[in-house]
Design a protein around this nucleic acid. Structure first.
Lengths: 237, 237
DNA sequence: CAAAGCCATGTTTTCGAAAATCATACCGTT
DNA sequence: AACGGTATGATTTTCGAAAACATGGCTTTG
């Protein structure tokens, strides 16, 4: 007889990662990036315990990991809180992203093979499909977010440095939180589809200088948008 | 009457940081960097528990933090181990350091004020004093290590980006571990004192191009040294 | 009345036992 | 002998109680 479906009572609690701690780290990260937990908000164990159904120490491990990524602020003996946002931090994250992403794009264009080209083309294709389906509020759509993340990830994936890719990933997450922050106040998304298309073409045709210029513009204009439309959230804290 | 010295029985267990977890993170980090714990060595809780006198969960939190810094390798459900070393990783860390440190030196030279100049000059002075006192095995001397770290830190401290400084600090630690790895097999330290002096002068005289070139050479030649004299440790794993 | 000290309360932090998981050796079968 | 599956011991992971700590209000004192 076939193994029955897992009973609700023994449904696995770990949907991502093998350990509960890794799972909670992942869920907390997504929630902070999406601003479901507001910047600066205290992260009290009682509340988290109820929300995530894990114990003190497991939560503590997750919060410690997120603190290292810059999404959580650990105040020794006084608990944790969601990392605050500020204009200064936005500028720093943007600057760091440009510095690193530009270098990684160059390396990827230099080193990328057929598989890399295929990855770039196919992740962009998926992204465009999702945008066609529902062109309204991309950041509200989890699928769009994943596809967008994967497209940018694929662009640099052939750079050859896992070390720099890890740093880039952390910075990308921190920047994405700022995008969410301003999403509710932004009048209309600009033509991101066109920008992504142009970046893809520059990369595939191995035009490094153009790709670098497009990426830098892409990153900086997004950050400018955030600074404009989330201004009231950046100056008060 | 003056407060008596803390009794041995109630001697504080936290010498660094306010929490035990932060203290253990710090001690473990130093021990891994100094190769007191060998690369790839499993980090079993029984052993750590005895060595650091903390409980499972506290150790777990410390290991999680160090995993985010790249000094510990977390294998889900199969424990932790000291991050392995490899030629590839050495190259990546060196490359990343050059990319970031070069940029930060430029920014610091651009933005540094009088306090910055004073910090650079005085940290170099302390470093030279320590080298005069005991010119034998600098990496064996904890004071030299701290002074060396602080000199390089001071050079970039005025860059204006806490975000990039944090990334730089992690990479510096990872590189320092490789230096320790080869220290036992290196015949003689080359003229680091002269290099540090030249870097300081280029920085203070605001000669960014020269400072950048010197720093890059400094970082790369150190890494080359490691690759040469720790070759037998890098190829086997 | 101001300032300092002290207790009460809520929160974080730490601990070791207990549950879950993995690695290994053993056994039976082919 | 080789293979697959299972029991066993070792190790990690998780939990909630208990200790440590910070904060704010209250009392006492100068």
């Amino acid at each position: 007889m076939a193994e029955p479906m897992p009973d609700a009572a023994i449904r696995p609690r770990k949907e991502f990662g093998k350990t509960i701690a890794a799972d909670i780290t992942h869920r907390l990260r997504e929630e902070i990036i999406a601003c479901g937990l507001a910047p600066g908000e205290p992260l009290r164990f009682d509340v988290l315990r109820e929300r995530f159904g894990a114990s003190f120490t497991t939560l503590r491990e997750a919060l410690t990991a997120l603190a290292a990524e810059g999404l959580v602020d650990a105040q020794e003996q006084r608990g944790f809180r969601v990392a605050p946002v500020s204009r200064q931090d936005l500028v720093e994250v943007t600057d760091a992203r440009v510095l690193i992403e530009v270098e990684l794009i160059r390396r990827a264009i230099e080193r990328g093979d057929d598989d890399w080209e295929i990855a770039v083309i196919s992740t962009l294709h998926r992204l465009k499909r999702i945008e066609q389906r529902d062109p309204e509020h991309p950041l509200r759509d989890p699928e769009w977010k994943i596809a967008h993340r994967q497209f940018h990830q694929s662009l640099v994936s052939a750079c050859g440095s896992a070390t720099l890719l890890a740093i880039r990933a952390d910075l990308f997450d921190r920047a994405e939180r700022y995008r969410h922050l301003s999403a509710n106040f932004r009048p209309r998304p600009r033509d991101k589809a066109g920008e992504h298309q142009a970046i893809m073409q520059a990369a595939i045709s191995r035009n490094a200088d153009l790709a670098v210029q497009l990426i830098e513009t892409h990153i900086r204009s997004t950050a400018d948008n955030v600074a404009t439309y989330a201004a009231h959230l950046l100056d008060t804290e």
